[in-house]
């Protein structure tokens, strides 16, 4: 019982207090990989603690229901006192209610995660079909760059994106092909490759599922935002390691000109500052 309480306390601390600590200071912007690692170490250990304390709670509830004297024995072994007859009934009822409530919550959570995961799979299937159609209708060049498939599509707007999975593919629009130099295009492709090589899609999905389970909780929103930002910074750093800083800075700058996107400018400034 004490273990269950410790796990529940750890889960609360890690899932609620952890984000408060990890969102302080500017260090995370310059150490994105370390920060994302810490976020997910805290988050996943918190989830494990929730699962562990929940499982123990359900098991204790079941034992208390099945064996009349178990509640009293448990208090005696955990806290060193044996309840009176009246208190014993209260302990028994509380244990049973807690056990069933935990079981109901676990069921609701599993159902929510399964529904959201199903939606994600459907979204991915639809998106893959859409991308296939875009490539078939307007793809004009296909390249293999160090084993990564890159397709250029005719169209307005600056599109550079990648869809993970077994048939990973980078899509670049003609607008980028025309505006960026070969080196800058390579930097964009290396950024996308970093997304595919790292577990970026996986952590994005975990963050999204977490937010779906706890829609109003600030910590869940913070995890989603931190994940979105940190994976971009990690991919920027990986692209710099593979093809140099200047091309990526220049590509970010050119894209920021049309999109009026402050985040792109700031990403370029971060890389310049880190030089």
């Amino acid at each position: 019982m004490i273990i269950a309480l410790i796990l529940a306390a750890y889960a609360l601390i890690s899932l609620l207090v952890g984000p408060q600590v990890l969102t302080r200071g500017g260090w995370r912007i310059f150490r994105p990989r370390l920060c994302l690692g810490l976020w997910y170490a805290v988050f996943l250990s918190g989830v494990l603690a929730v699962v562990g304390s929940g499982a123990i709670g359900i098991w204790l509830g079941w034992r208390i229901q099945a064996q009349r004297s178990y509640g009293g024995d448990l208090l005696a072994s955990s806290f060193g006192f044996r309840p009176t007859a009246g208190l014993d009934t209260v302990v028994r009822v509380t244990g049973v209610v807690l056990g069933w409530t935990t079981l109901a919550l676990a069921g609701a959570m599993i159902s929510l995660v399964a529904t959201r995961a199903r939606q994600l799979i459907d979204d991915e299937r639809r998106l893959r079909a859409d991308l296939g159609e875009v490539i078939a209708r307007s793809g004009y060049r296909h390249e293999q760059i160090d084993g990564l498939s890159v397709t250029y599509v005719a169209g307005r707007g600056s599109v550079a994106c990648t869809l993970g999975g077994r048939t990973a593919e980078v899509i670049l629009s003609a607008d980028l092909d025309l505006r960026l130099s070969a080196g800058e295009l390579r930097a964009v492709i290396e950024h996308e490759r970093a997304h595919l090589r790292g577990p970026h899609l996986l952590v994005s999905r975990l963050a999204m599922l977490n937010r779906a389970c706890f829609p109003g909780i600030r910590a869940a929103q913070q995890l989603t935002r931190a994940t979105a930002l940190l994976i971009e910074l990690i991919a920027d750093d990986a692209a710099v390691r593979r093809c140099g800083r200047d091309d990526l800075i220049s590509a970010l700058g050119k894209l920021a000109e049309t999109g009026r996107d402050d985040a792109l400018v700031l990403r370029a400034q971060r890389l310049a500052l880190a030089a």
């Binding site: 991915e124 979105a228 930002l229 700031l266």
Partner: peptide, 28 residues
């Protein structure tokens, strides 16, 4: 939510992320 399916070069960053970046860069 497409961020969990599709990864874009421009990212999925909003004004609050830009603010976090700006503050960190100013500090540095």
């Amino acid at each position: 939510d497409r961020q969990a399916v599709l990864l874009r070069f421009a990212g999925d960053l909003d004004t609050s992320d830009a603010e976090v970046l700006r503050r960190a860069l100013e500090g540095r």
